[in-house]
Write a protein that binds this DNA or RNA. Structure first.
Lengths: 341, 341
DNA sequence: GTAGTCTATGTATACGTAGTCATTTCAGTC
DNA sequence: GACTGAAATGACTACGTATACATAGACTAC
């Protein structure tokens, strides 16, 4: 009692019950190999002396950690929701999530070297800002790898994405059907593949209908980016009929920026987003947006991690989103443009 | 080439360079014990044959994982921001974050048994819904434990919290100084210590000024909780001068609910929150709230985890928040009550 | 020249478990 | 009652590293 007791191991339990260490180990890792009578004795003894299996030792021996890593940007409403979905769904499959977050794209490289030290069962790369060279390097790893909503990774490693192009096309068609004749597109960061695909989806659909679609860059995928760029939009002589924004968070900033500038939505201009954040459906915004099927995307990604397809080219999963219509594209009577007029 | 090469270990590097395995290990874990010439040779060889230290084996031997666990609710804007802060600050200290999220309070117990298997360097318990019995059980663990914003844990394990009571007092005084004579308090979940402390801070300060402060429970700490309870508030015959809400997320829901009901804020009623979420300062809401110093709180928590105070009673850190005044408590001319009138 | 000190390295072992192989137990059958 | 196959268990080793201990050399100080 005077001395702090040593760590309790499976050997201690074995001694307590009078069986071998192997039997104790089997009781916890493959119970079906142990007779029910010994199993009960072992479990009782473990409980009594406070034995808890050591996952570190198990991982070393079995070469499996039951842990999945995720490299995710530290900021952004969208990534936070993705993270939550991963954590929850992994827990349902008895896996844990080891989080590697980063604030600057330059940090990713050093993060990845850190990642390699843990022999994780798999790794999710979730960011639009991991460059192709780095991806190619990671692809040589023998661990399952999945790029999440990072279209640039296609062909290099397994990837799961929402259909960015088709999604934005849906929104564009929606706006065109409402009679919009002039549409401004606000992107996040023009160099990201996500941004490019979404813009292409919009531009192509609108081009076919003879509608121009100038591109304006917010400079980030943040609320502030959208709020600030509202100023530039208002300064121009004439407002477009509608503004398509590359992401919900930017769109929410834009909405507030427009409101402050005295521009009415949807009265003077329609606004749309992309992602389907919870906040977008908050009554204060009620943004029309393309809802990403995040739960499905995450489920597919985890599938790819836990039993990866063998051989051949990397999988390239694309899942369709669905449009959610909000007040920001609900036509009102005083709307300046009338398709049938 | 035909055969898949084996995993590369420190033994392989040792053979390549012509030194012992111990020297290779020292090169990576205690470089100062190795001469710079050998170190360079070892590092070069490691790079050449693709050696990466195995953190699992290191952890098993050294009894340190360099990983901190966090038990956090899966939902809620506030917890997501806390999580991000932890992940980022831990990365700065060369630690990783293993995430254990849960959706129902009942899950916590099973999560904790899972947690024990990983011999983590420390564990953050961040939720208002972990009961005292469970805490007492965890307190017997030999690993550093910190309760984050969970006042009920005081005395049982190390804890770090914002000063809930003083913070809400500040808000109450702020409202009283604006001349509010009738104030309604909307709590999240009445049984949580967080909720209780915040209400006490409000009720005491207002009581001293002869202002009643009825308590209404939203039933959750969510946006929806606030949105729905707006209905109950509006139904009552007379609106209070102000509504104090226990958390920002609930307050944002309430604001939208009031707006939908046609109640003007701050025209007809003032509204305040607690937490200081980014969304609260979005122009669409501009909520008066008590801003938690999250970065500081997280820093203190990590300090307690990484070098825990020895002996004595558990530490009980309380950090002061600061009020941020927004439009929701900015008096307008058409305000129904006038303190000097 | 010798004792002492310090640095750099090697040897050997332990961390706690899973799984391979061998051995024992046992129920079932002719 | 001997044989058979399956079920249950035990002995042993490997997973890849960190570190205590020992040792060899280089250097200082008398």
């Amino acid at each position: 009692m005077a001395e702090r007791s040593r760590r309790v191991t499976s050997v201690d339990v074995a001694a307590e019950v009078g069986v071998s260490q192997a039997t104790v180990a089997r009781t916890f890792s493959s119970p079906h190999l142990v007779s029910s009578s010994t199993r009960q004795k072992v479990e009782a003894a473990a409980e009594r002396i406070g034995y808890v299996p050591n996952a570190i030792a198990r991982s070393l021996k079995s070469q499996r950690t039951n842990i999945v890593g995720a490299v995710v940007p530290a900021y952004g409403e969208y990534w936070q929701s993705v993270l939550t979905a991963f954590s929850r769904q992994l827990a349902e499959r008895d896996r844990q999530l080891l989080l590697f977050s980063f604030t600057e794209p330059e940090q990713v490289e050093s993060v990845l070297t850190s990642v390699q030290q843990y022999r994780l069962d798999g790794l999710v790369l979730a960011s639009a800002t991991i460059g192709q060279p780095l991806l190619a390097q990671m692809a040589r790893s023998d661990r399952p790898l999945v790029a999440f909503n990072q279209p640039a990774a296609s062909g290099l490693i397994n990837s799961v994405s929402v259909n960015n192009e088709a999604g934005m096309t849906d929104i564009a068609v929606h706006l065109a059907n409402l009679g919009c004749a002039s549409i401004l597109y606000i992107g996040g960061i023009a160099t990201t593949s996500t941004d490019q695909l979404r813009y292409q989806g919009a531009a192509r659909a609108l081009g076919q209908r003879g509608i121009a679609c100038p591109y304006l860059e917010a400079g980030s995928f943040s609320y502030d980016g959208g709020y600030k760029i509202a100023g530039s939009v208002v300064e121009s002589d004439v407002l477009p009929d509608a503004i398509m924004v590359a992401s919900d968070e930017v769109a929410l900033g834009l909405l507030d920026g427009l409101k402050k500038a005295g521009v009415s939505v949807p009265g003077e201009v329609l606004v749309t987003g992309f992602d389907g954040l919870p906040q977008s459906s908050w009554a204060g915004y009620d943004l029309t947006t393309l809802v990403q099927p995040t739960e499905v995307l995450v489920e597919r990604a985890i599938d790819l991690l836990l039993d990866p397809p063998t051989g051949g080219k990397p999988a390239e999963l694309v899942v369709e989103g669905s449009i959610r219509q909000g007040l920001t594209t609900t036509r009102t009577d005083d709307h300046p443009f009338m398709p049938s007029a």
